[in-house]
Structures are given as C-alpha cells and as structure tokens.
Design a binder for these strands. Sequence first.
DNA 1: GCCTAACCGAGACGGTACGTCCGGTCTTTTT
DNA 2: AAAAAGACCGGACGTACCGTCTCGGTTAGGC
Lengths: 220, 220, 220, 220
Amino acid sequence: MSPAGQGGRKRDDSRDDAIRQAALKILAEAGYDRLTIDAVAARAGAGKATVYRRWAGKADLIIDAVVSMATNPEQPDTGSLRSDLIALTPIAEEGDHSFQADLQIGLVSGLVRDAKRRQVFTEQLIAPRTAVFRAVLNRAVERGEIAPNPNVDMLADVIPAMLFHQLVMTGHPPNAEFALALIDQVFLPLITTSAPRPGCASSHGTHLGAQPLVFRQNPA
Amino acid sequence: MSPAGQGGRKRDDSRDDAIRQAALKILAEAGYDRLTIDAVAARAGAGKATVYRRWAGKADLIIDAVVSMATNPEQPDTGSLRSDLIALTPIAEEGDHSFQADLQIGLVSGLVRDAKRRQVFTEQLIAPRTAVFRAVLNRAVERGEIAPNPNVDMLADVIPAMLFHQLVMTGHPPNAEFALALIDQVFLPLITTSAPRPGCASSHGTHLGAQPLVFRQNPA
Amino acid sequence: MSPAGQGGRKRDDSRDDAIRQAALKILAEAGYDRLTIDAVAARAGAGKATVYRRWAGKADLIIDAVVSMATNPEQPDTGSLRSDLIALTPIAEEGDHSFQADLQIGLVSGLVRDAKRRQVFTEQLIAPRTAVFRAVLNRAVERGEIAPNPNVDMLADVIPAMLFHQLVMTGHPPNAEFALALIDQVFLPLITTSAPRPGCASSHGTHLGAQPLVFRQNPA
Amino acid sequence: MSPAGQGGRKRDDSRDDAIRQAALKILAEAGYDRLTIDAVAARAGAGKATVYRRWAGKADLIIDAVVSMATNPEQPDTGSLRSDLIALTPIAEEGDHSFQADLQIGLVSGLVRDAKRRQVFTEQLIAPRTAVFRAVLNRAVERGEIAPNPNVDMLADVIPAMLFHQLVMTGHPPNAEFALALIDQVFLPLITTSAPRPGCASSHGTHLGAQPLVFRQNPA
DNA sequence: GCCTAACCGAGACGGTACGTCCGGTCTTTTT
DNA sequence: AAAAAGACCGGACGTACCGTCTCGGTTAGGC
C-alpha cells in the first residue's frame, strides 16, 4: 500500500540532543577511549537501538556531538589586525585544560580516520574558523595594514596550525604567553613582508622531498 | 632457589623486529584501531605472550615500532637556507600516500592519549626533526643570511606544524607544490624579517582568549 | 470527554484471522521461539499495536491461533470400540509431518510455561479430545463390550499420552503402524480386563518415588 | 609448522562443570526463559566466550547440563513386577515440585526443537530410563509373572508416557496417588493379558487417521 | 651430558564493549 | 477510536579484543 515510508512515529529530535549531551558529558568525564555507547545511552535515558538508528557508531556520534555543540567563532572587527588576531586566538580557560585537550585529541584521535568523517569534521568545525581568519586578513589588506598576498589561505592557517601542533605535541592547550609570542614574533612579522621574495618565485625545478615523512615503507 | 633469574633460554631478539614489521604492515593496511594484537602476533608468527613480554600493550608496541623504524633525518648543509629547507621538507612519494597518512594519523590517533607515551613519541620522533630545523636556522644566522632571532624554536616549528596540519585536515600528505609555496611564500619572508616589530613587544597586558578552543564546557 | 468510549472506528475483526493465519504459518516455518511478533504483524500486513490490542503477547497469540484453528474432533459411532478408536486416532497425513510436529512441539514448547495459559490450552484443545475418547469408552461399556471401570478418565488418556510421547521423543508424528499396534496390542487388551486386580487396591502404605524425576536438586 | 592444532592451553574441564552447575542453579531459580547466558557465566565465574566455546547457545548448554547431571536410574530387583515398578516410578519429593516441573518442561520446551538436540536428549536421558522399564518387564516374563509379549518396547513406554503427559498437561509432576492408580489400575491389568486379542491381529486394511493431529494445514 | 629456568607458539581464560535483535509500549498520520 | 507504520526503552544475544595464564616443547647457560 505505502510504497515509501510516510507513516509511522516520527523521530523524536529531542533524543538526538539528549544523546549528544550525554556523550559530551561522558567524553569530558572519562575521555574518548573510556566512553561507551552503553553508558551514553543509559545517561541519556535512551536505548542502544536509538543511538545506532542515528549514528553508525562511537566515532560518528562523537564527531557529530562535538560539531553540533561547537560555538561558531564571532567575527572580530577591532580596527587593527593585531587586536583582531588576539580576539580570535583561542586560549583554554583555567580549569578547562584537560577537557578541551581531551576533546580535541579525542577528536583527532578517533574521528579523523576515514575520509567521510574527516570531511564533516573539517567542513563543520575547521572551515568556519579558518574563514574568520581569512576575513580578518582580508580586512587588514583593505585597510592597507598589510600588503596583498596571493596566499592568504595558507597564511591564515599558520596560527591554527601552530596552536594545533602545540596541543598535539604537548597534550595541553597553548597558553596566553605562547599565543602572544606566536602573534607578535611569528605571524605579524611574516604578514607585513609577505610579498614573495624576488628571485624566489615558485618552483623553478627544485627538487624537495629527500626526506620521507616518517620512514620509507618497507618493501617486504 | 637462585635469588635472581640468570638461567634460562635467552630472549630471541629477532622476534622484536618481526613483530614490529608485522605491526607496521597491519597499521598501514587497517589503521590504528582496527589493528589487533592477535593479528600482529599471527602475522609475525609469534604468540601473544611474546608480544606482551616486550611491550605493555598496543600503544607501546606501535609507538616503538614507528620510532624504531623511523629514518633519522640527515643534517643538510647545502650552503643556502632555502635549499637546506627544501632538502629537509618531507614529501610523500607517489603511491606512498595512504600509508604515510594512515601511519601518521594512526599515531596521533592512538598514541597521544597519555602523557608518558606522548613524551616518548615527541622525544624520539619529533625532537630530532625539530632539532635539524633549528640547526639549519642557526647556521643561516651564522652565515648572516638571516637576522638573529630569540624565538628560533617557535620559528623552527612553523614548517612541521603547517605540514602536519595539512595532513590531518586533508587526510593525505602535502605535495611538492604545497611545500614549495610554504617555504617561499610563508617561511622565508617571515624569517628574514623576524625581528620583533617595534611597539609590539611581548604581552603588555593584552587579554586574548575570547574564543573558546572549541566550545564552552556545558555547566550542566 | 465522553465517559466511556462509544465513538470512533470499529475494530476490524478480519484482522484477527489474518494475524492468526500469519502466526500459524510462521510457527510452522520457524518454530515457536524463532517466531517474532514483528514477523507475524508484517506477514499479516498489520501493525504491532493491532496485535497487542488483541492479545497480551506472543504466547497468548499462538495459543489462541492454534485453538481457534483447531478442528473439533467428530464423535465417531461405528458400533465397535475398535473402529471408533481407529476413527479417532489422529495420524499425520503424508507431507504433513514437519508442520504438525513443529506446531505441537512449538505449542508445548512455549505455552505450557505458565499455569493460566496451560489451562486455556488444556481446556480448549486437549479436553475436547479427551472427552471424545471418554464418550467412546462409555458407549463401549453401555454396549457391554467392555467392563465398567472407575478410572475411565485415566484410561482415556493412554492413547493420547502414547501418541504425544512418541511425537515429542522422535520429533515426528506417529504413523499408522504405530497407532494400530497401540490400539490392538496395548489399549484393547487393557480395556477388556480393566477390573482392578484383587489384592492390589490402591495404596496400602507402599512407598514409591525412590527415583527422582530427573535428578536430585543440588543442595548447594 | 603445526598444520593442525596440537599446541595451546588445554581446555580446563573444571569450567564445564562449573558452568553446568551454575546453569542448573539458575534454571531452578528463574526457569528456562529467564535464564541468561550472562548470568550463567557470571555465576560460574567464567567469561561468556568460555561458554560459547563449548556450547552453541542456551539450548545446547541446558540440555547438556541436565543430561550430564542426571542421575542414572538404578535397576530395581525386588522379586515382583509391581514392587519393581513402584520402585522405579519417579515421584517428585515435596517442595521439589516447581523445580522438577520447570526443569522438565523447560527441557521439552526449549530443547526438543531440532533433530540433533532431541537425539541427545532422547538417547542420554530417556533411553536409559526406558531401558530399565524394559528390563523389569523382561524379568517379569522370565519369572513367568506375565505372558511373553512381542511389544515389550511399547508397553514399557506406557508408564513414562502417562507420567509425562500428566506433567505437561497439569504443570505439576504426578503425585503418589496418580502413580499408584496408574500402576495398579492401568498398567498391571494390561500387562497380565497382553497377548494380542484373537481376531485383532495387526492391520487388516483398516484405515485410521480420519482426524488430523490438531487441525488441517491451511492450503493458503 | 644433564639440569634448570626462561623462552617460544598456541590458544583458553575472565572481562568488557560491541552492534543486532526482539518484546512490549507509545506516537503519528490516515481512515 | 482503530488502523498501519515505525520509533521508543530495555535487555539478551553472540562476536571480537584485551591482557593474562597455561600448555607442551625448545634452547640456552651452569653443573
């Protein structure tokens, strides 16, 4: 009679949020590895089937929970590049360290493993942040504060990349001292002279890559 | 009877390598969390006890396997900063992509979750590479190619951080085009003007951190 | 608003039979505990709620389905005890074996587990059949074919009990050879001499029960 | 190296018994339906894998537990058929009712569903008991107490069949009164005249089976 | 040349989480 | 209000891994 489903009880959208909230709480309390679907379902007062009806598994759930709950960065417009950057640079609040670190590392950890999930992660979480940086840079160009640069995109990634690198390598979110040094001693000097150096125009046949990323794949 | 063990069969050191090789192969094929100790032992023709006699668990094994197999970067000395950097910048060879990416992401994925292991990882794998970058920069200062800079350490991290960021965000290792643009349009312009901008000396009370790292921890 | 329900759509009684038919088909195909309510509802083109509105659960449904569909045995009156019994003794038709066996075993299997359901089962399905046997025996007494017996009830159970036992122990319904041997060599000889043996009047203090039913309950 | 498994840790046979004992205890406490493999494993201090390594599932486990723990009936030899039968007839002890009933019904219930399991059940549990009955009857023939009979096997099944039928139909194990009436008023009268009735030799073309076992299979 | 202890491959063990399935209830839309 | 459809909670299922332990067998010393 009904070729395609139109009847039946509707998905209760409040369950999505309840489950996501439960997942985030347990993620904060126990970390990614010790989070179990059973625990999330129990905390949310949901059945496991309800979880699996909506997400394919732990990784999918967590990435969606984090993405959905993430606060979108506000576009700063303070009038100067430096104060825009400072306003934009995320610094963990005190007492927040382990949660934010665990969360980020847990994300990278478990979630960035296959292309589809990484795409969601990147588009939903990373892209909006990068976009704000690019907008800040572009506004600085318009103001004449810095010279136009064909590689704004790459430049805009420097600060997030450095912060992320620091987080992964040390396990702690970068503190204010690190962030200010990064802005004032690395990023701003760079940006003000970002016209390509004469004589160093892109690739004139130079070979790079003598070093493997980590080690050469064993032929065996 | 004998107070401390001195008798008995000697450990067969060839097993270590067999197990490490098996681990790396499976890591590349299946990724970090689809890798199981049983599979590693079976592939190596070893018993599980032999694995656990040598490593505390999966994470320890993988990190040790990667560290042991990693090729130490050679110190380049080509006479110019730019060619030193190019010689040093790792580019995945063709056909190598998924292996290197899986391996790196798998590493970050599974190993960076506790402090002790991260330390080993950082010291054994990351530090030597950073050290080479720093040496290259310092030699450029000695040659007078660039101005002295108090934040060489942070500068030396820019290229690795950008490459790592690119890898994690896209899922495949950066290619030559990306690497050359990074060196010529981001890093070299920066390094040649790395004296702190006047009036922007480190922190004069400015507050940053208006943005949370990802989202504010829910108070509930 | 209305104190007792009088308005609204009428119950569609045709659904009962559709569901019962579906239940019996699946019972025969899959056996009692591989039968699921979902499957029954789907096969009947009904919703699960429609099933639960009419029966309390799986067991109730099955027992009602079997009872409702059961053909009431006709009272034979052939003039002789033997031919009455032969007319009455159920024999599975060829090709019918697995269905009848599965159905009976499935019934015993799932339904005899609680007192209430067993009562329904016994009263609705077993009692009518036993009653016919008793009537046949009583008529034989009236004809003077056999002697009166105070335990007609127990005697009337012998044939059904033997057939049932055979079914359960072998897994398929007894064939004609078995049934005829049962009637001619066990039941009829018995019935014609069924006066109690002298000196064997019921219980004169004899103790039986030295053997446990299956095994002694472990005291631990 | 090793083509077929000969190495490896040996099965710990003590686990079998521990699991069987646990299963029987829970079976007695909760009944067949409410017995779960998790509960059995937990009670036995075993992992679920250890249970599933030895038995295919709940039904296999229970049937094996019951069969293994069943006490083999002792061969009585009291000198008279009647007292042999009385010694042999199982009567539930007081307070034992629900356990024995649940156990037997649970057995029939869940276990007699497929041919393989029924075979084990029949051979291990039923056959030994039937054999004892047959032996008792044969001895009575040797003593001249009863006439020789070509259908001893069928006769020997009458008492077990009646007891089983009573159990299934009422849900309670038969009591002493029932058992004595069965022996004295049904079985012994039968057995003493068990020569086939003249004129009733097996099948002379008579058709039986007009009645279906339960109902006619619906052609739909 | 034999003893002894630690090694080896194999694999069973207790435990824990997984993802699936089902029972019985509830909700939505349509009739 | 009952119908079909199907989401919901709860909980058991059977599988897969983890890290440990046990098995029979091998391989070194030290005697």
